[in-house]
Computed example of a mutant assay.
Amino acid sequence: MTTNEEGRTLDSGALKALAHPLRVRIYDLLSERGPQTASTLAALIGETSGATSYHLRALASHDLIREVAGRGTARERWWERPKGRINLPGPDEQMSPSNRAAAQIVTSEFFRLRHRTLMDYLNRSSADVPEGWEDAGLVMTTMLDLTPDQMGAVKEELTAVIDAAIERYRGQETLPGTRRVTLRAEIFDLPTANSRQTMPEE
């Protein structure tokens, strides 16, 4: 494991430990819902508590999660995801084949869950929206024409805004009126060439 001010980058051992769809789901639920037991996770996922307990131990063995100190019993242990940013290395040709396969599993499952969360938000009925939260969210997409340096500058600006929000609202999980929200920021170059250069003239 390597850790710096930008968060933890998963080493090969942690990456392989996470490289299972059910473990990514468990990890995501601990981020979304806070501490859970094997039993509560089993109910959320639709698995047996024996299966979730096995996967929790595998995640804990690489410090991806930890037991909540002073809570639970020997038979009913509570687990949490440590706070802090996790950097998921994308599949890289310089990786070993096994590490590359693990990275593909983790990133694919993570973004599949992320997309499902977004679609659940977009498709929920007005009756399911808590009072006061009707217009609180924002989903926005735009297109820009940028150089690599310009995109890097925008990335730094977005990161600064998110880091400031994290610091400003840290530790509010028990305040009345708060709900867990997801904050997303994406900026990347598209795989196709600039459309204005490739479209035929009219």
Score class of each variant (00 low, 15 high):
residue 189 D to T: 06
residue 98 S to G: 04
residue 169 Y to S: 06
residue 142 T to D: 09
residue 12 S to E: 12
residue 198 T to S: 11
residue 155 K to F: 01
residue 126 S to G: 12
residue 95 M to W: 09
residue 180 R to W: 02
residue 91 P to F: 05
residue 196 R to S: 15
residue 135 D to C: 09
residue 23 R to Y: 08
residue 162 I to P: 01
residue 169 Y to L: 13
residue 35 P to W: 13
residue 201 E to V: 15
residue 195 S to K: 12
residue 121 Y to K: 03
residue 28 D to G: 09
residue 173 E to N: 02
residue 26 I to L: 12
residue 21 P to H: 00
residue 137 G to P: 01
residue 182 T to I: 07
residue 124 R to L: 05
residue 80 E to W: 07
residue 160 A to S: 06
residue 185 A to D: 09
residue 72 G to W: 03
residue 92 D to W: 00
residue 80 E to C: 05
residue 128 D to F: 07
residue 107 T to A: 08
residue 131 E to I: 08
residue 149 D to V: 04
residue 200 P to T: 09
residue 35 P to H: 12
residue 95 M to N: 03
residue 29 L to E: 12
residue 87 N to L: 01
residue 160 A to D: 11
residue 53 S to F: 07
residue 116 R to W: 10
residue 59 L to N: 09
residue 24 V to P: 01
residue 168 R to E: 15
residue 30 L to Y: 06
residue 89 P to L: 03
residue 94 Q to C: 10
residue 86 I to K: 02
residue 71 R to Y: 00
residue 23 R to A: 06
residue 50 G to A: 09
residue 60 A to S: 09
residue 85 R to A: 10
residue 26 I to S: 08
residue 187 I to Y: 02
residue 61 S to F: 02
residue 197 Q to C: 04
residue 21 P to G: 00
residue 19 A to L: 02
residue 109 E to M: 12
residue 66 R to H: 14
residue 102 A to P: 01
residue 30 L to D: 08
residue 38 A to C: 01
residue 161 V to H: 07
residue 192 T to H: 14
residue 101 A to W: 10
residue 80 E to N: 01
residue 193 A to L: 15
residue 81 R to P: 05
